[in-house]
Design a protein around this nucleic acid. Structure first.
Lengths: 98, 98
DNA sequence: TGAACATATGAATATCTGTTCATATGTTAA
DNA sequence: TTAACATATGAACAGATATTCATATGTTCA
C-alpha cells in the first residue's frame, strides 16, 4: 500500500475517476479502443448508438485524459491515452470474472 | 490482456463495479479499512458523517462483495473483502497522482 | 463558393443515486 | 423483561447524469 495517507481531496478526485469508468457506454467505448484507434462514426456503429451520444461520452473521456485524439481529414480518431486505462479495466475484469 | 472479448453483459457488470468505487463516501470508507477492520460507529466518527449514511453505503459495498463483516457483541466490524479492492484503488491512485 | 459529410455542442428531459429523517431490528447487561 | 446501545432499513427529497433532438462547427472536394 501507499505509504502516505492520501489527502481528502485526492480521494474525491479518485472517486471522479472511477465515476468515469462506472458507465457502460463509456466502458464499451474504451473497450472498442483496446486494439487501436477508431473514429466517432465507427464507434457509434459498433455500439449501435447515436453519434451524438458517443460524442458526448468521448468528451467526458477526453476531459478526464483517458482518450486522446488524432485528426485525419473529416474524421477524428480516438485512442486510449495510456496503458493505465487498459490496466484499470483489466483489473476490474479480474474481479468481475472470478 | 484477456484473450476473449468480454460479453456485453460483463461490461455492464464491470460498469456497476466501478460505479461502486465512483463515490467519495464509499471510497473513504474503504480507505479507513486499509489497515484493518472497523465498526460502523468508528467509521462514521472518522468521516464525521451520519451513522445512517455510513450504514447505507456499507450495504452497497457488501452487496458488491467489497467488504465483509464480523459481529462482536453489539458492534459489527467491517473489513475489505480481499486484496483486489486495495489494488483497484491503488491503481486508480497511480493515475490520479501522476 | 457551396454541398456533403463528420463531429461537437446546448438545452431539455427522464432516470438514477446519495443523504436525511424516522423507525425498526438486534444485542447486552442489569 | 426492560433500558441502553449499535446498526439497519424504508421513504422522501434534492442533486447529478445519460440520452435525445436540434443545431452548430469544421473539413473536403467539386
Amino acid at each position: 500500500m501507499t505509504d502516505k495517507i492520501p489527502e481528502l481531496e485526492i480521494l474525491f478526485e479518485l472517486a471522479d475517476l472511477f465515476k468515469v469508468f462506472g458507465d457502460s457506454t463509456r466502458l464499451r467505448i474504451m473497450y472498442t479502443l483496446f486494439d487501436g484507434e477508431r473514429s466517432v462514426g465507427e464507434i457509434a456503429e459498433l455500439l449501435n448508438m447515436e453519434h451524438s451520444t458517443i460524442s458526448h461520452q468521448l468528451r467526458v473521456l477526453r476531459t478526464n485524459k483517458l482518450v486522446k485524439i488524432r485528426r485525419d481529414g473529416k474524421q477524428i480518431y480516438y485512442s486510449l491515452d495510456d496503458d493505465h486505462v487498459k490496466k484499470v479495466i483489466e483489473m476490474g475484469l479480474d474481479h468481475v470474472l472470478e
